[in-house]
Amino acid sequence: MSYSLNFYIASLDIIQLSLSTPASQWFDNAYPLWLEIGEMEDNENSQVVWRNIVSTISDAVQQAKTDPAQSFIVQDEAALAIAAGIDSNAEFIDSMTHSSSSGEFFREEFLGWLGRHNFKQPMLLAWLTERALFGLVSESYPSWGYLTLAEITDLLNKWQKPKKNLDEDKEEWLRQLMDVLKVARMNQSDILTVYS
């Protein structure tokens, strides 16, 4: 149960505006959780690191806004900041979990396979687990992704039920994924994910 793909509903437009504005409430809300998951104390040193992270993230998002082809690999404390920001600001819906020994099974044999065969969308795995968020990319845990409302609608329209019965784990994940997509469509919202 060590790793989870967490789903949130939020407006991508608002997130982009928040990420490109260092003084935004989005960052203020993220700071306490960033300290907690990074196992850090709230002291002068942490505050300096935080200000540096906020500044560099917002610079990168502004750069990506003017040149959308740009992407920036974000790691360590900066990646935790984005994960903490999403969790602190977006509305959590559900979490798909897998054990440490079944990461590949979850990613390739479930999300990858399901995307290709049942949603007719080979990018589904990448979109949910490692998609550039306004230019910000994480190579490994924690990483993030998103689906726009248009993509969610398209996925649900193209959805085809698997022809064969799935095993109990895939059944559980599929039920969760379908519920999440339907909740987002009902709320006319984009989906953000954090994979950690």
């Binding site: 149960m1 060590s2 790793y3 990646a79 440490s100 845990y141 950690s196």
Partner: peptide
């Protein structure tokens, strides 16, 4: 044992 690797220290738990 519950095992985390790298910076994957963030968990939402379960219902």
């Amino acid at each position: 044992l519950e095992a985390k690797g790298g910076k994957a220290g963030f968990s939402k738990g379960r219902n």
